[in-house]
Design a protein around this nucleic acid. Structure first.
Length: 436
RNA sequence: GUGGCUGUAGCUCAGUUGGUUAGAGCGCGAGGUUGUGAUCCUUGAGGUCGCGGGUUCGAGUCCCGUCAGCCACCCCA
Protein backbone atom coordinates (compact mmCIF):
# COMPACT_ATOMS: atom_id res chain seq x y z
CA UNK A 1 0.00 0.00 0.00
CA UNK A 2 1.26 3.46 -0.82
CA UNK A 3 2.06 5.52 2.22
CA UNK A 4 1.82 9.28 2.58
CA UNK A 5 5.20 11.05 2.43
CA UNK A 6 7.33 11.08 5.56
CA UNK A 7 6.04 13.39 8.23
CA UNK A 8 2.74 14.22 6.53
CA UNK A 9 -0.76 13.34 7.69
CA UNK A 10 -3.96 12.15 6.07
CA UNK A 11 -6.96 13.87 7.59
CA UNK A 12 -10.01 11.60 7.57
CA UNK A 13 -13.23 13.32 8.71
CA UNK A 14 -12.69 12.86 12.45
CA UNK A 15 -9.08 14.05 12.27
CA UNK A 16 -9.96 16.92 10.01
CA UNK A 17 -12.64 18.04 12.45
CA UNK A 18 -10.14 17.96 15.31
CA UNK A 19 -7.75 20.10 13.28
CA UNK A 20 -10.56 22.50 12.43
CA UNK A 21 -11.59 22.68 16.08
CA UNK A 22 -8.10 23.92 16.90
CA UNK A 23 -7.67 26.28 13.95
CA UNK A 24 -11.18 27.73 14.26
CA UNK A 25 -10.54 28.41 17.93
CA UNK A 26 -7.33 30.19 16.97
CA UNK A 27 -9.23 32.24 14.45
CA UNK A 28 -12.07 33.12 16.84
CA UNK A 29 -9.68 34.15 19.62
CA UNK A 30 -7.61 36.24 17.19
CA UNK A 31 -10.68 38.08 15.97
CA UNK A 32 -11.86 38.69 19.54
CA UNK A 33 -8.47 40.23 20.30
CA UNK A 34 -8.66 42.57 17.35
CA UNK A 35 -6.39 40.79 14.88
CA UNK A 36 -7.12 40.61 11.16
CA UNK A 37 -6.47 37.51 9.12
CA UNK A 38 -3.97 37.50 6.28
CA UNK A 39 -2.18 34.91 4.22
CA UNK A 40 0.65 34.79 1.71
CA UNK A 41 2.01 32.37 -0.85
CA UNK A 42 2.59 28.73 0.07
CA UNK A 43 6.06 29.04 -1.47
CA UNK A 44 8.46 31.95 -1.70
CA UNK A 45 11.79 32.66 -3.32
CA UNK A 46 14.39 30.64 -1.47
CA UNK A 47 16.44 33.79 -0.91
CA UNK A 48 13.69 35.29 1.25
CA UNK A 49 14.40 32.71 3.92
CA UNK A 50 18.14 33.33 3.84
CA UNK A 51 17.64 36.98 4.83
CA UNK A 52 16.57 36.12 8.35
CA UNK A 53 18.17 32.74 8.92
CA UNK A 54 21.28 32.62 6.75
CA UNK A 55 22.44 29.97 4.31
CA UNK A 56 22.26 27.28 6.96
CA UNK A 57 18.49 27.24 6.67
CA UNK A 58 18.51 25.74 3.20
CA UNK A 59 18.99 22.15 4.33
CA UNK A 60 15.88 22.47 6.50
CA UNK A 61 13.66 23.53 3.60
CA UNK A 62 11.78 21.85 0.80
CA UNK A 63 13.18 23.84 -2.08
CA UNK A 64 12.70 23.30 -5.79
CA UNK A 65 13.06 24.69 -9.29
CA UNK A 66 10.32 24.62 -11.85
CA UNK A 67 11.17 22.30 -14.73
CA UNK A 68 12.99 24.47 -17.24
CA UNK A 69 12.92 27.41 -14.86
CA UNK A 70 15.82 29.22 -13.29
CA UNK A 71 14.46 30.51 -10.01
CA UNK A 72 14.69 28.50 -6.81
CA UNK A 73 11.69 28.46 -4.53
CA UNK A 74 11.02 26.99 -1.12
CA UNK A 75 7.83 25.81 0.55
CA UNK A 76 7.29 28.14 3.46
CA UNK A 77 8.84 26.86 6.71
CA UNK A 78 7.50 29.79 8.74
CA UNK A 79 5.50 32.93 8.24
CA UNK A 80 7.66 35.74 9.58
CA UNK A 81 9.61 36.46 6.35
CA UNK A 82 6.36 36.65 4.39
CA UNK A 83 4.84 38.86 7.06
CA UNK A 84 7.87 41.14 7.06
CA UNK A 85 7.81 41.33 3.26
CA UNK A 86 4.10 42.13 3.19
CA UNK A 87 4.37 44.69 5.95
CA UNK A 88 7.43 46.37 4.46
CA UNK A 89 5.70 46.68 1.08
CA UNK A 90 2.84 48.75 2.48
CA UNK A 91 4.24 50.06 5.73
CA UNK A 92 3.41 53.66 4.87
CA UNK A 93 -0.26 52.92 4.40
CA UNK A 94 -0.78 50.55 7.31
CA UNK A 95 -2.18 51.64 10.65
CA UNK A 96 0.02 51.73 13.72
CA UNK A 97 -0.22 49.38 15.34
CA UNK A 98 -1.07 46.73 12.76
CA UNK A 99 -2.40 43.47 14.19
CA UNK A 100 -2.34 40.46 11.91
CA UNK A 101 -2.81 36.72 12.27
CA UNK A 102 -2.83 33.66 10.03
CA UNK A 103 -3.25 29.88 10.45
CA UNK A 104 -1.64 28.29 7.38
CA UNK A 105 0.38 25.13 6.88
CA UNK A 106 4.18 25.08 6.88
CA UNK A 107 6.79 22.66 5.63
CA UNK A 108 10.13 21.72 7.15
CA UNK A 109 12.50 19.01 5.96
CA UNK A 110 13.19 17.72 9.46
CA UNK A 111 13.21 14.16 10.65
CA UNK A 112 9.76 13.53 12.09
CA UNK A 113 9.18 12.64 15.71
CA UNK A 114 6.32 12.81 18.15
CA UNK A 115 5.27 16.44 18.07
CA UNK A 116 7.41 17.26 15.03
CA UNK A 117 6.21 16.68 11.50
CA UNK A 118 7.18 17.91 8.06
CA UNK A 119 3.83 19.56 7.40
CA UNK A 120 1.82 21.24 10.11
CA UNK A 121 -0.57 24.09 10.78
CA UNK A 122 0.70 27.04 12.75
CA UNK A 123 -1.05 30.04 14.17
CA UNK A 124 0.90 33.29 13.89
CA UNK A 125 -0.12 36.47 15.66
CA UNK A 126 1.82 39.71 15.40
CA UNK A 127 1.55 43.31 16.52
CA UNK A 128 3.61 45.68 14.38
CA UNK A 129 4.34 49.29 15.27
CA UNK A 130 3.88 49.13 19.04
CA UNK A 131 6.92 48.81 21.30
CA UNK A 132 5.09 48.92 24.63
CA UNK A 133 5.16 46.24 27.33
CA UNK A 134 1.38 46.25 26.99
CA UNK A 135 1.72 44.99 23.42
CA UNK A 136 4.03 42.22 24.66
CA UNK A 137 1.44 41.29 27.28
CA UNK A 138 -1.37 41.32 24.73
CA UNK A 139 0.50 38.89 22.51
CA UNK A 140 1.04 36.53 25.44
CA UNK A 141 -2.55 36.94 26.57
CA UNK A 142 -3.87 36.14 23.11
CA UNK A 143 -1.93 32.87 23.04
CA UNK A 144 -3.07 31.99 26.55
CA UNK A 145 -6.72 32.75 25.82
CA UNK A 146 -6.68 30.34 22.89
CA UNK A 147 -5.33 27.61 25.18
CA UNK A 148 -8.00 28.48 27.73
CA UNK A 149 -10.68 28.34 25.05
CA UNK A 150 -9.43 24.87 24.11
CA UNK A 151 -9.91 23.68 27.69
CA UNK A 152 -6.37 23.91 29.02
CA UNK A 153 -5.59 25.59 32.34
CA UNK A 154 -2.66 27.22 34.09
CA UNK A 155 -2.14 23.84 35.80
CA UNK A 156 -1.65 22.15 32.44
CA UNK A 157 0.69 24.59 30.73
CA UNK A 158 3.03 27.44 31.63
CA UNK A 159 4.28 30.49 29.81
CA UNK A 160 7.99 30.98 30.46
CA UNK A 161 9.16 34.49 29.86
CA UNK A 162 12.65 35.87 29.43
CA UNK A 163 14.27 38.95 28.01
CA UNK A 164 17.39 39.14 25.93
CA UNK A 165 18.57 42.32 27.64
CA UNK A 166 18.25 40.73 31.08
CA UNK A 167 20.30 37.76 30.02
CA UNK A 168 22.89 39.91 28.29
CA UNK A 169 23.12 42.03 31.41
CA UNK A 170 23.76 38.97 33.53
CA UNK A 171 26.52 37.89 31.17
CA UNK A 172 28.16 41.29 30.90
CA UNK A 173 28.07 41.62 34.64
CA UNK A 174 30.14 38.43 34.80
CA UNK A 175 32.75 39.83 32.48
CA UNK A 176 31.55 38.63 29.09
CA UNK A 177 32.62 40.83 26.18
CA UNK A 178 29.66 42.04 24.08
CA UNK A 179 31.28 40.51 20.99
CA UNK A 180 31.10 37.10 22.65
CA UNK A 181 27.39 37.28 23.40
CA UNK A 182 26.17 35.21 20.42
CA UNK A 183 28.39 32.31 21.43
CA UNK A 184 27.09 32.58 24.96
CA UNK A 185 23.48 32.47 23.83
CA UNK A 186 24.22 29.28 21.94
CA UNK A 187 25.76 27.80 25.07
CA UNK A 188 22.97 29.00 27.35
CA UNK A 189 20.46 27.30 25.09
CA UNK A 190 22.10 24.03 26.09
CA UNK A 191 21.66 24.41 29.84
CA UNK A 192 19.65 21.43 31.01
CA UNK A 193 20.53 19.41 27.93
CA UNK A 194 24.17 18.98 28.85
CA UNK A 195 25.50 18.27 32.34
CA UNK A 196 26.45 21.12 34.64
CA UNK A 197 30.06 19.99 34.48
CA UNK A 198 30.02 20.04 30.72
CA UNK A 199 28.50 23.50 30.83
CA UNK A 200 31.16 24.74 33.22
CA UNK A 201 33.89 23.29 31.00
CA UNK A 202 32.51 25.18 28.03
CA UNK A 203 32.06 28.35 30.11
CA UNK A 204 35.67 28.18 31.29
CA UNK A 205 36.82 27.92 27.68
CA UNK A 206 34.98 31.17 27.13
CA UNK A 207 36.74 32.63 30.13
CA UNK A 208 34.28 32.38 33.00
CA UNK A 209 35.04 30.97 36.44
CA UNK A 210 33.20 27.89 37.65
CA UNK A 211 31.61 29.83 40.51
CA UNK A 212 30.19 32.39 38.11
CA UNK A 213 29.06 29.59 35.81
CA UNK A 214 27.16 27.89 38.63
CA UNK A 215 25.36 31.13 39.39
CA UNK A 216 24.48 31.35 35.74
CA UNK A 217 23.11 27.81 35.65
CA UNK A 218 21.00 28.48 38.68
CA UNK A 219 19.62 31.64 37.15
CA UNK A 220 18.85 29.98 33.84
CA UNK A 221 17.04 26.99 35.30
CA UNK A 222 14.87 28.81 37.84
CA UNK A 223 11.26 29.32 36.86
CA UNK A 224 9.58 31.65 39.33
CA UNK A 225 6.42 33.66 39.54
CA UNK A 226 6.75 37.40 39.38
CA UNK A 227 5.75 37.86 43.01
CA UNK A 228 8.47 35.64 44.39
CA UNK A 229 11.24 37.57 46.15
CA UNK A 230 13.91 35.70 44.18
CA UNK A 231 12.39 37.07 40.98
CA UNK A 232 12.54 40.60 42.28
CA UNK A 233 16.09 40.12 43.47
CA UNK A 234 17.13 38.57 40.18
CA UNK A 235 15.59 41.34 38.13
CA UNK A 236 17.02 43.99 40.41
CA UNK A 237 20.48 42.52 40.32
CA UNK A 238 20.70 41.32 36.78
CA UNK A 239 19.15 44.14 34.89
CA UNK A 240 19.72 47.82 34.87
CA UNK A 241 17.98 50.81 33.43
CA UNK A 242 14.72 49.78 31.87
CA UNK A 243 14.96 46.11 32.90
CA UNK A 244 13.12 46.08 36.23
CA UNK A 245 10.76 48.78 35.03
CA UNK A 246 9.97 46.74 31.92
CA UNK A 247 9.14 43.59 33.83
CA UNK A 248 7.05 45.51 36.31
CA UNK A 249 5.02 47.00 33.47
CA UNK A 250 4.78 43.66 31.65
CA UNK A 251 3.60 41.85 34.72
CA UNK A 252 1.09 44.55 35.57
CA UNK A 253 -0.34 44.24 32.05
CA UNK A 254 -0.44 40.44 32.26
CA UNK A 255 -2.25 40.81 35.57
CA UNK A 256 -4.77 43.24 34.08
CA UNK A 257 -5.44 40.80 31.27
CA UNK A 258 -5.98 37.94 33.68
CA UNK A 259 -3.21 35.66 32.51
CA UNK A 260 -0.48 36.35 35.07
CA UNK A 261 -1.09 33.02 36.83
CA UNK A 262 -0.09 31.19 33.64
CA UNK A 263 3.27 32.99 33.51
CA UNK A 264 6.69 32.38 34.98
CA UNK A 265 9.97 34.22 34.71
CA UNK A 266 12.59 31.86 33.34
CA UNK A 267 15.71 33.50 31.96
CA UNK A 268 16.73 30.15 30.48
CA UNK A 269 14.31 30.69 27.62
CA UNK A 270 16.76 31.94 25.03
CA UNK A 271 14.90 31.03 21.85
CA UNK A 272 17.78 30.12 19.62
CA UNK A 273 18.88 32.63 17.13
CA UNK A 274 19.48 36.22 17.23
CA UNK A 275 16.63 38.13 15.71
CA UNK A 276 14.75 38.50 18.97
CA UNK A 277 15.57 41.86 20.52
CA UNK A 278 13.60 41.93 23.75
CA UNK A 279 11.07 39.80 25.56
CA UNK A 280 10.98 36.15 24.51
CA UNK A 281 8.61 33.43 25.69
CA UNK A 282 7.73 29.80 25.26
CA UNK A 283 4.65 27.89 26.28
CA UNK A 284 5.26 24.35 27.48
CA UNK A 285 3.35 21.55 29.09
CA UNK A 286 3.76 22.29 32.82
CA UNK A 287 6.05 19.31 33.49
CA UNK A 288 8.16 20.11 30.47
CA UNK A 289 6.85 17.22 28.40
CA UNK A 290 7.18 17.43 24.63
CA UNK A 291 8.44 20.38 22.69
CA UNK A 292 7.15 23.92 23.02
CA UNK A 293 3.47 24.46 22.28
CA UNK A 294 4.23 28.02 21.25
CA UNK A 295 7.10 30.44 21.14
CA UNK A 296 7.56 34.07 20.36
CA UNK A 297 8.91 37.40 21.35
CA UNK A 298 9.93 40.85 20.27
CA UNK A 299 11.84 41.41 17.03
CA UNK A 300 12.28 45.13 16.57
CA UNK A 301 14.92 45.00 13.82
CA UNK A 302 13.40 42.50 11.46
CA UNK A 303 11.11 44.68 9.36
CA UNK A 304 14.12 46.83 8.52
CA UNK A 305 16.04 43.75 7.52
CA UNK A 306 13.35 43.07 4.92
CA UNK A 307 13.52 46.59 3.55
CA UNK A 308 10.82 48.28 5.59
CA UNK A 309 10.98 51.27 7.91
CA UNK A 310 12.16 50.78 11.50
CA UNK A 311 9.19 49.03 13.07
CA UNK A 312 8.92 47.47 16.50
CA UNK A 313 7.18 44.09 16.37
CA UNK A 314 6.13 41.29 18.68
CA UNK A 315 4.49 38.00 17.86
CA UNK A 316 4.36 34.27 18.32
CA UNK A 317 3.78 31.00 16.53
CA UNK A 318 1.75 28.05 17.86
CA UNK A 319 1.71 24.73 16.01
CA UNK A 320 -1.16 22.27 15.91
CA UNK A 321 0.89 19.12 16.48
CA UNK A 322 2.24 19.55 20.00
CA UNK A 323 -0.88 21.43 21.05
CA UNK A 324 -3.14 18.54 20.02
CA UNK A 325 -0.92 16.03 21.80
CA UNK A 326 -1.03 18.06 25.01
CA UNK A 327 -4.81 18.41 24.75
CA UNK A 328 -5.15 14.65 24.36
CA UNK A 329 -2.71 13.96 27.21
CA UNK A 330 -4.65 16.30 29.49
CA UNK A 331 -7.99 14.82 28.48
CA UNK A 332 -9.42 18.08 27.17
CA UNK A 333 -9.81 17.05 23.53
CA UNK A 334 -13.60 16.79 23.12
CA UNK A 335 -15.24 13.70 21.65
CA UNK A 336 -15.82 13.56 17.92
CA UNK A 337 -19.54 14.20 18.42
CA UNK A 338 -18.96 17.29 20.56
CA UNK A 339 -16.43 18.67 18.09
CA UNK A 340 -18.79 18.06 15.17
CA UNK A 341 -21.56 19.89 17.00
CA UNK A 342 -19.31 22.85 17.86
CA UNK A 343 -18.29 23.07 14.23
CA UNK A 344 -21.95 23.24 13.22
CA UNK A 345 -21.83 19.82 11.58
CA UNK A 346 -24.56 18.14 13.60
CA UNK A 347 -27.42 17.02 11.32
CA UNK A 348 -30.71 18.73 12.01
CA UNK A 349 -32.66 15.77 10.72
CA UNK A 350 -32.37 12.28 9.37
CA UNK A 351 -35.29 11.30 7.16
CA UNK A 352 -36.32 7.63 7.07
CA UNK A 353 -39.16 5.79 5.43
CA UNK A 354 -41.39 3.16 6.99
CA UNK A 355 -40.94 1.15 3.82
CA UNK A 356 -44.30 1.75 2.16
CA UNK A 357 -44.16 2.86 -1.50
CA UNK A 358 -45.80 6.21 -0.68
CA UNK A 359 -43.30 7.02 2.05
CA UNK A 360 -40.38 5.89 -0.10
CA UNK A 361 -41.60 8.22 -2.83
CA UNK A 362 -41.94 11.17 -0.42
CA UNK A 363 -38.46 10.80 1.05
CA UNK A 364 -36.44 12.67 -1.59
CA UNK A 365 -38.94 15.52 -1.62
CA UNK A 366 -38.88 15.93 2.16
CA UNK A 367 -35.10 15.74 2.15
CA UNK A 368 -34.71 18.48 -0.39
CA UNK A 369 -37.37 20.67 1.25
CA UNK A 370 -35.36 20.51 4.48
CA UNK A 371 -32.16 21.36 2.65
CA UNK A 372 -33.79 24.27 0.85
CA UNK A 373 -34.96 25.40 4.28
CA UNK A 374 -31.29 25.80 5.21
CA UNK A 375 -31.24 22.69 7.36
CA UNK A 376 -28.65 19.94 7.48
CA UNK A 377 -30.69 16.92 6.41
CA UNK A 378 -29.53 13.39 5.71
CA UNK A 379 -30.95 10.03 4.83
CA UNK A 380 -29.66 6.72 6.04
CA UNK A 381 -27.38 4.87 3.70
CA UNK A 382 -28.69 1.56 5.06
CA UNK A 383 -30.74 -0.63 2.78
CA UNK A 384 -32.81 -2.07 5.60
CA UNK A 385 -36.45 -1.15 6.25
CA UNK A 386 -36.01 -1.95 9.92
CA UNK A 387 -37.12 1.16 11.83
CA UNK A 388 -34.93 0.29 14.81
CA UNK A 389 -31.80 0.02 12.72
CA UNK A 390 -32.59 3.21 10.85
CA UNK A 391 -33.07 5.03 14.15
CA UNK A 392 -29.81 3.62 15.33
CA UNK A 393 -28.19 5.02 12.23
CA UNK A 394 -29.78 8.42 12.92
CA UNK A 395 -28.50 8.27 16.49
CA UNK A 396 -25.01 7.48 15.23
CA UNK A 397 -25.15 10.54 13.04
CA UNK A 398 -26.04 12.50 16.18
CA UNK A 399 -29.06 14.04 14.50
CA UNK A 400 -31.34 16.42 16.39
CA UNK A 401 -34.49 14.97 14.85
CA UNK A 402 -35.54 11.87 13.00
CA UNK A 403 -38.38 12.21 10.49
CA UNK A 404 -40.16 8.89 10.06
CA UNK A 405 -42.28 9.06 6.91
CA UNK A 406 -45.55 7.21 7.54
CA UNK A 407 -47.23 7.86 4.20
CA UNK A 408 -47.25 10.36 1.36
CA UNK A 409 -48.65 13.02 3.69
CA UNK A 410 -47.78 12.26 7.30
CA UNK A 411 -44.58 11.90 9.31
CA UNK A 412 -43.63 11.04 12.86
CA UNK A 413 -41.19 13.64 14.14
CA UNK A 414 -38.90 12.25 16.82
CA UNK A 415 -36.74 14.49 18.99
CA UNK A 416 -33.64 12.35 19.35
CA UNK A 417 -32.50 13.98 22.59
CA UNK A 418 -35.74 13.53 24.51
CA UNK A 419 -37.32 10.69 22.59
CA UNK A 420 -40.55 12.71 22.30
CA UNK A 421 -42.58 11.99 19.15
CA UNK A 422 -45.44 13.74 17.40
CA UNK A 423 -47.41 13.34 14.21
CA UNK A 424 -46.79 16.10 11.69
CA UNK A 425 -48.17 16.73 8.18
CA UNK A 426 -45.33 16.63 5.66
CA UNK A 427 -45.88 20.29 4.78
CA UNK A 428 -45.02 21.34 8.35
CA UNK A 429 -41.88 19.29 8.86
CA UNK A 430 -39.44 22.03 7.83
CA UNK A 431 -41.02 24.64 10.06
CA UNK A 432 -41.05 22.29 13.04
CA UNK A 433 -37.36 21.52 12.73
CA UNK A 434 -36.15 25.02 11.79
CA UNK A 435 -34.11 26.68 14.51
CA UNK A 436 -35.40 29.93 15.77
C1' G B 1 21.46 14.39 8.59
C1' U B 2 23.57 10.40 12.81
C1' G B 3 22.42 6.25 16.10
C1' G B 4 18.76 2.80 18.41
C1' C B 5 13.76 0.21 18.83
C1' U B 6 9.36 -1.30 16.22
C1' G B 7 6.14 -2.83 11.69
C1' U B 8 0.33 -9.09 11.12
C1' A B 9 -7.26 -6.69 8.69
C1' G B 10 -9.76 0.23 9.23
C1' C B 11 -8.59 -0.21 15.04
C1' U B 12 -6.66 -3.33 19.35
C1' C B 13 -3.99 -7.61 19.16
C1' A B 14 -3.09 -13.55 18.88
C1' G B 15 0.08 -16.59 15.83
C1' U B 16 4.22 -22.65 19.64
C1' U B 17 11.60 -24.49 18.72
C1' G B 18 10.52 -22.10 10.91
C1' G B 19 5.72 -26.73 9.08
C1' U B 20 -0.69 -27.36 5.33
C1' U B 21 -5.74 -22.85 2.66
C1' A B 22 -2.89 -16.57 8.64
C1' G B 23 -6.92 -15.94 13.33
C1' A B 24 -10.08 -13.20 17.24
C1' G B 25 -12.71 -8.94 19.13
C1' C B 26 -14.41 -4.21 17.71
C1' G B 27 -15.68 -1.60 13.34
C1' C B 28 -17.75 -1.97 8.21
C1' G B 29 -21.58 -4.49 4.56
C1' A B 30 -25.99 -7.83 3.92
C1' G B 31 -30.07 -10.59 6.00
C1' G B 32 -33.52 -12.19 10.10
C1' U B 33 -36.55 -11.16 14.70
C1' U B 34 -39.00 -7.02 17.75
C1' G B 35 -42.64 -0.20 14.44
C1' U B 36 -38.43 2.96 17.94
C1' G B 37 -32.03 4.22 19.19
C1' A B 38 -31.01 -1.87 23.11
C1' U B 39 -30.31 -7.07 23.03
C1' C B 40 -30.05 -11.39 20.02
C1' C B 41 -29.23 -14.72 15.58
C1' U B 42 -27.14 -15.67 10.58
C1' U B 43 -23.75 -14.06 7.08
C1' G B 44 -20.20 -11.24 3.87
C1' A B 45 -16.17 -8.21 2.53
C1' G B 46 -11.36 -6.80 3.97
C1' G B 47 -4.39 -9.01 4.85
C1' U B 48 0.74 -10.93 -1.55
C1' C B 49 2.05 -10.60 7.37
C1' G B 50 5.11 -2.53 5.32
C1' C B 51 8.07 -3.44 0.67
C1' G B 52 12.30 -6.05 -1.89
C1' G B 53 15.99 -9.60 -1.78
C1' G B 54 18.47 -13.87 0.75
C1' U B 55 18.97 -18.62 3.76
C1' U B 56 15.82 -23.18 3.72
C1' C B 57 12.49 -28.89 1.25
C1' G B 58 9.45 -24.98 3.58
C1' A B 59 9.65 -17.97 6.11
C1' G B 60 4.52 -13.98 9.40
C1' U B 61 8.69 -16.40 12.24
C1' C B 62 15.88 -16.29 10.65
C1' C B 63 19.45 -12.68 7.79
C1' C B 64 20.29 -8.18 4.65
C1' G B 65 18.43 -3.87 2.36
C1' U B 66 14.61 -0.33 1.98
C1' C B 67 10.27 2.48 3.49
C1' A B 68 7.40 4.16 7.57
C1' G B 69 6.51 5.08 12.88
C1' C B 70 8.68 5.88 17.63
C1' C B 71 13.13 7.34 20.91
C1' A B 72 17.79 10.03 21.58
C1' C B 73 21.00 13.54 19.03
C1' C B 74 20.50 17.83 15.61
C1' C B 75 17.18 21.64 14.99
C1' C B 76 13.32 24.30 16.90
C1' A B 77 12.35 29.99 12.46
Amino acid sequence: MLQPPTGTRDFYPAEYNRLRYVTETWRAVSVRHGFEQIDGPTFEHLDLYKIKSGDGIVSELFSFERFGGEKTYALRPEFTPTLARMYAARAGALPKPTRWFCTPTFFRAERPQRGRLREFSQWNCDILGDDSPQADAEIIACAVEALRALGLTSEHVKVRISHRAAVEQALVKRGVEPAQLPRWFTLLDRVGKISNDAFIDEAMKLGMSSAMSLQLISMMTQATTFEEPTTQVMLGEETTGTGPAYFKALFAALEEQGVADWCLLNLGIVRGLAYYTGMVFEIHEAQGALRAIAGGGRYDKLIELFGGPPTPAVGFGMGDVVLSLVMEDKGVMPTDAVIAERLGLRPDAVVISNGTPEADAALPRVLSALRRGNLHARRSGKATKNIGKLLQDAARMNARYCVILESGSLATLKDMATGAQSQVPLGEVVARIARR
